[in-house]
């Protein structure tokens, strides 16, 4: 399975303008629309909204943010935007391809 698999998937989310919540390893949750994702799964978010502005007041005014991939714990994706069947068959194909 190539690591580009998830990059391609996130590119699809960018095209469909899906709003996601990125949860970092330190517990900070940032909601926004992904505008860019690279090989290392670093993200760019526009209009990021912090889940707990009381704790992180310095982040309220952000217009744009770059999130380093290694600090990400989860990316919450809305269940209806997941495209579960497509992903499952794509993943099975990738595994098969790699075995050959």
């Amino acid at each position: 399975m190539q690591s580009q698999f998830f990059q391609t998937y996130f590119r699809g989310l960018i095209e469909r303008c899906v709003s996601v919540t990125i949860e970092l390893k330190n517990g900070l949750q940032i909601q926004g629309q992904i505008t860019y994702v690279d090989d290392n799964l670093n993200f760019n978010l526009v209009d990021p909204e912090v889940s707990d502005p009381v704790k992180q007041p310095q982040l309220i005014t952000l217009k744009n943010s770059f999130i380093r991939g290694s600090t990400v714990k989860y990316v919450h994706i809305p269940q209806e935007e997941l495209q579960e069947e497509v992903l499952i068959s794509a993943c099975k194909n990738e595994v098969k391809k790699q075995k050959q």
């Binding site: 690591s3 799964l41 994706i77 997941l82």
Partner: peptide, 14 residues
């Protein structure tokens, strides 16, 4: 489990 890669990155549903 919906999908995974060699880094053990995964997509988990529900």
């Amino acid at each position: 489990l919906v999908s995974y890669d060699n880094h053990l990155n995964m997509i988990i549903s529900k």
